[in-house]
Design a protein around this nucleic acid. Structure first.
Length: 922
RNA sequence: GUCGCUGUGGCGAAAUGGCAGACGCAUUGGACUUAAAAUCCAAGGACCUUUGAUCGGGUCGUGUGGGUUCGACUCCCACCAGCGACACCA
């Protein structure tokens, strides 16, 4: 229990305050909590307490615009949960920090012409001020920003762990690179060959690959940051160009990232999103030996390997399609087709993914002139090139089964390629069957194999298995697994990010010779250099290349190196911040080992659904690497995840469906919205808040007008946490009204200074009051634990409605209400608690306990139905038996009247709930 | 196109097999007041019916259509609408 006092220099002295005045009490209590470090979290959970609780918010990106009403939604939810569990005796870790590296901050810095560090720090200060204004019970001593040098020192350190790790497929875990078995052939070539061999296995590796280059932003982007061929941020076009980039081998962890979703307490929706993103599929790889007019002597391998999820349709494979990037294309193309094929492939390579899919989406392709042998039919099939086949998925080649794949069907129809049905649907009409048999319609479902020799008559599942077995015997096929997930492109050509702690060795000519090494751990952090001009210039060379030679060039162990000049993407810092919060001051490690074991995993993680895939997948991946390497104790970081719903705003739409800015709308007396200029009647809809529509709600303005407690309460009262819901200022006024009522319930609003209302007296509660008090405790307790805050608030409103009517209000009941309200509206509750005569903060006061004895009632009204329709209600004693209840119900005059002359077929009696007589005319 | 979420009074919502609309907003009426504001009390799904007025009684009602059940907002099937995510991954 903490005994608090008000700081002497507190500007918010208790003044006369007969009325509820949040503008006075809120800053006062915020100063009190801060001064007394009320919410400081100990290094370890209290062994005498009821265990630990780690509750985390997705930390905000400190934009220049300040806090949005969406932020306090999740933050209030976690705050209520934390305050509740503190009162229940748990030791609660509840930190806050900032995700401040990355494009938005840098764009903002360029726009406002300030160095990024300076504008970032200003934004952070503003965010902190706004967050403190809302009275969240964070342990602010643990606050961090991903841009703190002492923080990103450890981000760099973790990157070096990734660099030092290879994935042991047999053991299914990441291991130190020093344990990678080196083949004799490599070892004999000397240490440089060994180093290059190792580099090929590291989880952090460099790769020359086709990347998403965005000239508008002057950087490459991860696949996840590209939406429809345009950048997620800024909506600039993205091109595919080959560039040497850092990649993280997240694909090695695909299977575990998928499998471990089972163990998590996340919504099925989010789990499914992640599972779909990982996109595991099982099928087979099948080899089609090549027959080329060029001959196959120089060909290695001599077969085209395709990936299919439907090996059972192999007899229907009437042609093959290669991705334009497939290396075998140029080797098998016949002389007369060469020019055409080359032109097609070249055109495709310059196309962005957008261009490939845009427009009429008509599939295109060219015939290579080559053929390959279907391993089961032994028939030759044509080999085509088409850009609807992706080079970086599966083997980059497919067998086309036009009868049973919609894409292949479309292509085959366009180029008049043969369509052969080999699967018969199980339940199709005669007409449908005829369409499928004729090849006019494609059937992609499962069914019975036909026209497939040994597979005939088998169901799809069995046919797949047998086909794989047959292929294995021939040595031309095997079971295979594929993932949609790609390795994570991890480098950016921008200034405002963590520098890579990597050095490129320089050869005698002063140019990098291809050998790389990590910056020694003890030399971390690698800070960003000072740059006069850090702006992107539209070319792929990173701005850090312009740094001073003293930063750029390093001499180590007698060798000269050039620093890596790429920076890490914004996601890097948020991959592990939850660990740093556990021991933010630890200078010997990224997290203190004992403290990590004591606090992890995060028990409740709340944030927006927009991070369902990217942040959560990346963080889980890093965590698993750290787990494999023995640095953390848990395989998963976030045990329970909840996504708060989006807060929308009202907007207006005209007859054509165009959105109208709210300052152009006026509602008349009947509440009909009209356009100010045209007088046109507008339709009210809900839409995302946007500057263009001028319907953005500023939380700071709401705090000034209604108070932080009202804002908190309103955001929770709007509806279920996970639902999207529209903002209403009248609703805020409603909860503010409730707080006023609570205040008047307890405080004498006529007196000059704050003192108890005369109605509040130190007397015992009546049994009827007991019922209200204890059933409210029970309901609020359960609702808070289930994060059902809207109904918890409704229960407290009922409590207040009840006691407002009582002319004498027992003090104990008022204290109970104050404690129940405390997690939701902490400022006013602290103030009331003090007025009720308690000198200490209620932050750690024991949560009220519902006494079942006091919730017992003697009798209740039970609905009585006839044929399922409620006809009357009968008062029955609690605990009544079925027969007695039936007898009581029957004896009610209205019921006996209805049963008159009828036969009761059945009487359904649920004691205490209802009685139902099923009757028919006699 | 595929997947997911959501459809309940004028509005935000509650009830997840057992009295539909708790609680709140807005509305209406009353009390207090010289008056207004504030506050307090009360009413309220729609329609029909009984009555001098009440009390009362009935029919319909949770997006639409069907089904399971003594009983469905709740479970199942099909469809419609709105929102969101993904989108040639073979």
């Amino acid at each position: 229990m903490r005994v608090g006092f008000l700081p002497r220099d507190n500007p918010y002295q208790v003044r006369q305050m007969p009325r509820y005045n949040p503008a006075e009490i809120e800053p006062k209590w915020q100063a009190y909590w801060e001064h007394n470090k009320t919410f400081r979290c100990p290094e370890f959970p209290d062994p005498a307490g009821k265990g630990k609780l780690y509750v985390l918010d997705m930390f905000p990106y400190p934009s220049g615009a300040g806090l949005h009403v969406g932020h306090p939604e999740g933050y209030t939810a976690t705050d209520i949960y934390c305050r509740y569990w503190r009162m229940q005796g748990k030791t609660v870790l509840h930190p806050m920090g900032y995700d401040a590296f990355g494009l938005p901050a840098e764009e903002y810095a360029i726009r406002t012409n300030t160095p990024p560090r300076q504008s970032t720090e200003a934004n952070i200060a503003n965010f902190t001020r706004q967050l403190k204004m809302l009275g969240f019970s964070y342990d602010w001593d643990r606050c961090l920003s991903t841009t703190d040098v002492e923080y990103f020192r450890w981000t760099q350190w973790i990157f070096l762990v990734l660099f030092d790790t290879w994935y042991d497929v047999q053991g299914q875990r990441g291991r130190p690179i020093s344990e990678l078995p080196i083949p004799e052939a490599i070892a004999s070539k000397g240490p440089e060959a060994v180093a290059i061999y190792r580099d090929g296995f590291r989880l952090a590796y460099q790769d020359e690959a086709l990347v998403n280059w965005c000239p508008g932003l002057g950087t490459v982007l991860a696949n996840e940051e590209v939406i429809d061929g345009r950048s997620e941020r800024g909506d600039h076009p993205v091109q595919r160009i080959p560039l040497k980039q850092w990649m993280l081998r997240i694909t090695s962890y695909a299977d575990r990232l998928l499998a471990d979703l089972d163990s998590l307490d996340w919504s099925t929706g989010i789990k499914k999103l992640q599972a779909d993103w990982i996109g595991k599929s099982t099928g087979a790889e099948v080899d089609f030996p090549v027959v080329s007019s060029q001959g196959t002597e120089g060909l290695n391998p001599k077969a085209i390997r395709v990936y299919t999820t439907r090996p059972d349709t192999l007899y229907g494979a009437t042609y093959l399609v290669l991705a334009p990037e497939h290396p075998i294309v140029s080797k098998i193309t016949s002389a007369e087709r060469s020019a055409e094929v080359q032109e097609y492939c070249q055109a495709a390579s310059f196309k962005s993914d957008r261009d490939r899919t845009e427009g009429d989406k008509q599939k295109t392709g060219v015939f290579t002139g080559a053929y390959a042998i279907n391993p089961l039919t032994q028939e030759p099939v044509a080999v085509w090139v088409a850009d609807y086949v992706l080079g970086n998925y599966g083997t980059g080649a497919i067998m086309a089964v036009p009868a049973h794949d919609v894409r292949d069907h479309e292509f085959a129809v366009k180029y008049q390629l043969p369509i052969v049905q080999v699967v018969e649907p199980l339940d199709a009409t005669a007409e449908e069957l005829a369409e499928i048999r004729s090849g006019r319609v494609c059937f992609a479902g499962e069914g019975i194999a036909v026209g497939s020799r040994q597979l005939n008559g088998l169901r799809t599942k069995q046919a797949k298995a047998l086909a794989i077995e047959e292929l294995s015997k021939l040595g031309l096929g095997r079971e295979a697994i594929n993932y949609k997930l790609r390795d994570w492109l991890f480098s950016r050509q921008r200034f405002w990010g963590e520098p890579f702690p990597i050095l490129h060795e320089l050869g005698p000519d002063g140019q990098p010779n291809g050998q790389i090494r990590a910056v020694p751990m003890e030399d971390l952090p690698v800070d960003l250099p000072y740059l006069e001009d850090y702006k992107p210039h539209g070319r792929p060379e990173p701005p850090l290349g312009k740094a001073d030679a003293s930063w750029l060039y390093v001499e180590l162990d007698g060798k000269r190196y050039r620093r890596e000049t790429n920076t890490m993407p914004q996601w890097a810092g948020s991959c592990w911040y939850y660990l740093r919060f556990i021991s933010p001051g630890c200078s010997s490690a990224f997290v203190d080992r004992q403290q990590e074991a004591a606090w992890m995993p995060v028990d409740l993680y709340i944030g927006g659904a927009e991070h369902a895939v990217l942040h959560l997948l990346y963080a889980r991946f890093w965590h698993k690497v750290l787990y494999d390497r023995g640095y953390v104790s848990q395989p998963e970081p976030f045990q329970k995840l909840v996504n708060q719903g989006m807060i929308l705003s009202y907007a207006f739409k005209d007859q054509r469906g165009a959105l109208v800015s709210v300052d152009l709308v006026q509602e008349d007396a009947e509440g009909v919205a009209k356009h100010v200029q045209t007088g046109e009647t507008l339709q009210r809809i809900v839409a995302k808040m946007s500057k263009a529509l001028k319907n953005v709600v500023d939380p700071e303005g709401v705090v000034k007008e209604y108070g932080a407690d009202a804002l908190r309460l309103y955001e929770m009262f709007m509806g279920p946490l996970e639902a999207t819901k529209p903002w209403s200022m009248q609703g805020v006024n409603g909860v503010r009204n409730f707080l006023d009522r609570v205040w008047r319930l307890i405080v004498d609003s006529k007196a000059e200074e704050s003192r108890l209302s005369e109605a509040v007296q130190d007397i015992a509660t009546s049994s009827q009051q007991d019922l209200v008090v204890h059933s409210t405790i029970a309901a609020v307790t359960q609702d808070v634990e289930n994060l059902s805050f809207n109904t918890a608030i409704a229960r407290m409103m009922e409590f207040v409605n009840h006691f407002t009517k009582e002319s004498v209000r027992p003090k104990s009941a008022m204290e109970t209400l104050t404690l129940l309200l405390a997690p939701f509206a902490p400022h006013v509750s602290e103030e009331l608690w003090r007025i009720l005569g308690n000198p200490e903060s209620l932050a750690y006061a024991p949560w009220p306990k519902a006494d079942p004895e006091k919730m017992k009632i003697a009798s209740l009204e039970v609905p009585v139905q006839v044929n399922g329709k409620v006809r009357t209600k009968v008062v029955m004693p609690v605990g009544i038996g079925s027969e007695e209840a039936e007898r009581l119900a029957k004896s009610h005059p209205r019921i006996s009247e209805l049963l008159e002359g009828q036969t009761v077929i059945k009487a359904v009696v649920v004691p205490g709930k209802m009685v139902n007589f099923v009757i028919k005319p006699a």
